[in-house]
Write a protein that binds this DNA or RNA. Sequence first.
DNA 1: AATAAAACATGACAATTGTCATGTTTTGAG
DNA 2: CTCAAAACATGACAATTGTCATGTTTTATT
Lengths: 201, 201
Amino acid sequence: MTETRYGKGQYIFREGDPTEYFHIVKEGSVKCVKSSLDGKECTLKVLMPGDLFCCDASAFDGASHPGTAQPMGDVSVLRMKKDAYFKMLRANPDAAMEVIRYLGNRLNEAQEKAKVLALDRADQRLASLLISLAERSGVPEPNGIRVSVRLTRQDMANMVGVTTETAIRIMARFKKARLVSGTAARLVIRDLPQLRLLAST
Amino acid sequence: MTETRYGKGQYIFREGDPTEYFHIVKEGSVKCVKSSLDGKECTLKVLMPGDLFCCDASAFDGASHPGTAQPMGDVSVLRMKKDAYFKMLRANPDAAMEVIRYLGNRLNEAQEKAKVLALDRADQRLASLLISLAERSGVPEPNGIRVSVRLTRQDMANMVGVTTETAIRIMARFKKARLVSGTAARLVIRDLPQLRLLAST
DNA sequence: AATAAAACATGACAATTGTCATGTTTTGAG
DNA sequence: CTCAAAACATGACAATTGTCATGTTTTATT
């Protein structure tokens, strides 16, 4: 299990690269991204410390990475050679069970995301995103919940499948309605209940 | 491991039901569905013989089912009490590894689906669906590939996050362009290469 | 074979979201 | 602190998709 550090502009691995390592996020956040042929990008998930990645099937079949893993700022990642990882899992039922649980949670999450993308309007999808940001990386503050991950409007757009302009416009509306305040450097959720209402309306 | 049969109009379990069993599809197909508060439905996946479900995290935390499992026609399902299933996995590293591989594949699939929903137009999403139907349940025929699962336009609409009308219109276009023929009872993919092209255009 | 229900179909129109263009503000590197 | 790059912002317009209404065809059941 070796520790590796990555910084801005680097990649942990890219879509299509051969799968060699199992990874755990130690410090910082990591973006999982897929892109289409015409350059459009979609952010599938932001991994936080403790999150596993490439703990799964792509690692098995000698296949290649189905997406790109990109550090958001400076990150530190623990990794282990594929073979050693599998050996470890076989020898250690507790670890294997933990990975099964983790993958199951990730699968549920991914399917919930698919549902939101399939059924909700852009503003609802953004509201859902803000809610989960508040829950997963929120820091309580006097006048709301600060999101500790730095996300530009473009990042948010890529996370909910809309254009940057649409994300900007909707966030501007949210700001006007006092549901949120600030931008990437300091995004604060000010009215979580109202956002929840909007997400399910 | 007991076998259970289900028929039209029944449910294997519904969203919110407590998780009690681990399941395997033995015969027939099973729809995994989520619905929103206002009645809109989204089909996450069609399970085929050999597919596992509830092999995952929801089964752990004593949580409830995140979605509904609905038989498509007559199906036969093998199931095992949660506790026995976990005991079996712990005692059997091969089985545990197999579940890890399976969940990983499902996760990749779900994320690919999310990407398509986030980035592609309705016609591209439908083309992608038809491609994967051809690959996963296609039966070669003199003039194309027959889809062995019976799917109405409404089913397809629910699978790609569009309205029934939109699915009907796009399928009509596909039919006119000789990419497909027939309806639910006998859907045939006639020009897979062209569909692939369309899906990634 | 009759018949009700479901599936398929199509038009007119509305709502949502994307595209492109342009300008302002904020951020970060030197 | 300066300055370029990135992020944020907004308008005008186009494209996509949804909504509602209505009608035909197919399917399944008695």
